[in-house]
């Protein structure tokens, strides 16, 4: 199904909703870029505050290099122009490396980790939620939901070291830390798991709530009355409605996943963008931090948009208010 077919299928309110989201996304990105630009320029102790350099020649050279002698509007405009060309500038701390190179070298590892974690979270969460909705108000339901609450309550930076302590130090089932790419998947299991568990818990609860809503609906009663087998009722009639809360959670989930990956990459020493970002932040590598924030921001906004559009497509009742 192409994008045009989707758009043609959307009518009235649904169409309006999607269009407004499509307009909002670039505005948000621009706002993020602008905010980080002005924070960088005006923060005391920031990279562009020339307090200590006394030599006027050097100062002049630096001001010229970073366009500080030009009016602010010009500085901002040239910054945005560079961004539009996809140029994030040189790194402050890594000599001879541009921010683009660093991101290109590290982002694939982060994406690999993120994809595995998302799949894991979706699988565990949807399965648990579905199961406890079907077995509503039984000990299975209570047990699964208790696990879900515990999963939500254990933030990534608590669960990661604990998984390391138990599964790689005591039982030695998995390697402690490190990264071997796709060649050795055993390295990615613990990081992905510690990233996925809080989300699995939340997805399980959303899935359960959504399924319970739908299972009580009239059309499900009709389907059962027709004598359809329970598996068909569940898989053909209810999942599409029951998964809606999960879909709307996808956008915020990606934002949290990205934030979580900062910690997981630090704990398990995965050479991803998250670790680079944290090190950059601690070393005051301004351009790198800024570039990473823009990349992450764009990713998060994109996924928010996708999840909103998906929600609009899946649920014909949605309205933009």
């Amino acid at each position: 199904m192409g994008f045009r077919t989707i758009l043609r299928k959307l009518q009235g309110d649904q169409f309006r909703y999607v269009v407004i989201r499509l307009i909002q996304a670039p505005v948000v990105l621009l706002l993020l870029i602008t905010l980080s630009f002005f924070l960088m320029r005006f923060a005391p102790g920031g990279p562009f505050m020339l307090e200590q350099r006394t030599d006027p020649v050097i100062e002049q050279a630096i001001r010229a290099k970073y366009l500080l002698d030009k009016p602010l509007s010009y500085q901002y405009w040239s910054f945005v122009k560079d961004l539009l060309r996809g140029d994030l500038g040189p790194s402050f701390k890594h000599k001879n490396r541009t921010v683009n190179e660093i991101i290109a070298a590290t982002l694939p590892h982060s994406i690999y980790l993120g994809v595995i974690a998302t799949l894991l979270a979706a699988f565990l969460g949807i399965a648990a939620g579905l199961f406890s909705a079907i077995r509503h108000d039984t000990s299975v339901d209570y047990g699964l939901m208790a696990c879900a609450v515990i999963g939500i309550s254990l933030p990534t930076f608590v669960i990661g070291p604990l998984l390391q302590l138990s599964f790689s130090i005591y039982w030695q089932w998995f390697p402690l830390a490190g990264y071997e790419g796709m060649a050795k998947p055993s390295y990615i299991i613990l990081p992905a798991l510690s990233l996925a568990l809080p989300f699995a818990g939340r997805i399980a609860r959303l899935m359960r709530a959504g399924m319970l809503d739908v299972l009580n609906a009239d059309f499900v009663r009709t389907a059962r009355a027709k004598g359809l087998p329970e598996t068909i009722v569940i898989f053909r009639h209810t999942i599409r409605g029951g998964i809606l809360p999960v879909v709307s959670y996808l956008g915020p989930a990606i934002a949290q996943l990205v934030t979580g990956s900062l910690v997981v990459e630090k704990i398990f020493q995965i050479p991803g963008l998250g670790r680079e970002f944290v090190e950059g932040a601690l070393n005051r590598d301004y351009t790198l931090v800024m570039g990473t924030v823009i990349v992450y921001g764009a990713l998060i906004i994109l996924f928010n948009l996708l999840s909103d559009i998906m929600y609009g497509v899946l649920d014909p009742r949605v309205k933009y208010v």
Binding site: Q24, A25, V28, L31, L32, L35, S36, L39, M40, A43, P44, G45, G46, A255, V258, T259, A281, L282, R284, V289, M290, T292, V293, Y296, G297, I300, I301, N304
Partner: peptide, 16 residues
Amino acid sequence: AIPFMFLVIILLVLFG
């Protein structure tokens, strides 16, 4: 829609 955690990190890095 703005991922604020990153702005907080920038803020802490810049302002101490």
